[in-house]
Design a protein around this nucleic acid. Structure first.
Lengths: 255, 255
DNA sequence: TCTGTGCTTTCACTCAGTGGAAGAAGTGCC
DNA sequence: GGCACTTCTTCCACTGAGTGAAAGCACAGA
């Protein structure tokens, strides 16, 4: 029975947003039935709303009828402000030129690390990070360094949670992780050794502005090249300092 | 008088989309009143819908109350499929390493060129292109080369329009542009000389798959270095071929 | 041929959504 | 300090946009 059994108080906007939220990194392509299930929006309603999203290219459909995030939504997303990324981009490229490896720019978002940029070349070890994607803080270089420089209460809160263990090498004991973070603060940078992915190691440095870590830059290498990690520290710290300096001063805008 | 005087037949979804479409490269930040005006959605209605979009972080607000595209929308946008970009990325980086200049990956979208990727370093001349942004085809390297390889009817249609003239050097006479495009096809790549922006020149090569130009790679340099353009041709063509080869074969997907 | 899955369409029912107007808040100018 | 202007917030009488269960279609696989 239509109308009478529906979810009262739920707006059309919230349904549209739930439909878009049905997509994630693990589910970039969905059937209409998938979308209805994952969003909690009735099939007929989802059908109608998806049709409108398709018409405006916010969603697209592949040859087999599966839906995905559309180009128009990507274009709108590219209008999001990104001064940090713009300032950091040339320095991230410099790190890439210097190392030839995967280079990241990331920030903390809630209790995860969010990747703003990722540069890699043909010879770089394939890695799981993705621009726009999130990973846990403790097993990633950029995440570890951002965590280390957070306020005491935040670190305590983070350590008090059940920590994900992506590999057998991931440090998940609170005491041990706290000591690791203290070491990161003492030396000013972080290393990881197969803590996020078997076969990958990383180094990362914080980008500090007005005493606060606003972002981090990191380099990920194959475990076979782990002994090169110490050589990455100086370029990382130098790049992080340059980014911080440039970001910290008012932008010379010409509107 | 509410309700009775409103626009009949306009859905809530279309209003939400109109609100998001109010933002563009020239207007990345808007007041609520701006949004209402630009979207045609009544102020009170825009207020309600914008509140919902803010709550879900599809829109954000700055310190002065101006609205902008929010981080959540950017994240969703990053889920859009991008196999071409993924395949091309390492080769684009290689071109950057080789040249140190601005490097683009672009496709045709309608009668414009759409930038999928842009890599630049500290020393690269500042240029107007933007990832997710569009520029006209005829005055840009990547656009010129994409236009040259289009079907005859498309070229005729393009040349029949009133062509934008960003600089005094822009070729806008249809006959002259047609000859220029014929030269591009003959030599297999394109150059521009201050046709899009005074002070910038470029070289570009098409990425051809199954006989069709699916994208182009280009390098933009300062006019002061225009004499280096011929040296860019070989790396551009080589990079374009590699991208085409890799893109043309079925991806080794592990679902 | 049958089963299962996904998609499309229908339509009786209803409440989510509408926007003009009033008022509040803030800024800039004289 | 007062006035003008702009922007934002809230209200609420009114109504048609929106809803989803169900039926049926299309397709694939066994």
């Amino acid at each position: 029975m239509a109308g009478g059994s529906r979810e009262p108080g739920r707006s059309v906007t919230s349904r549209v947003l739930a439909i878009l939220d049905a997509f994630d990194a693990d589910h970039p392509q969905l059937t209409l039935t998938d979308i209805s299930r994952r969003s909690g929006v009735a099939l007929a309603t989802a059908h109608r709303l998806v049709r409108e999203l398709e018409a405006s290219q916010m969603l697209g459909r592949d040859g087999e009828g599966r839906l995905h995030i559309g180009r128009r939504l990507w274009e709108l997303g590219e209008l999001a402000p990104r001064r940090l990324l713009e300032v950091a981009h040339p320095w991230v490229q410099e790190l890439f030129v210097t190392t030839g490896e995967n280079v990241h720019l990331a920030v903390r978002d809630g209790m995860e690390v969010l990747y703003l940029h990722k540069v890699y070349g043909r010879r770089a070890v394939p890695i799981v990070s993705r621009i726009g994607g999130r990973l846990p803080m403790h097993p990633t270089g950029v995440g570890k360094v951002l965590l280390a420089y957070e306020a005491e209460w935040f670190i305590t809160s983070y350590l008090g949670r059940k920590l994900e263990r992506p590999t057998p090498h991931t440090i998940t004991e609170p005491g041990r992780l706290a000591r690791e973070l203290a070491a990161v603060r003492a030396q000013g940078y972080a290393f990881t050794h197969e803590e996020m992915t078997l076969g990958s190691c990383s180094a990362a440095a914080p980008i500090v502005v007005d005493g606060r870590p606003i972002a981090a830059v990191g380099v990920v290498v194959s475990s076979h090249r782990a002994r090169e990690l110490p050589r990455l520290v100086e370029p990382l710290l130098a790049g992080a300092r340059q980014i911080a300096r440039e970001y910290g001063r008012p932008s010379r805008t010409v509107p």
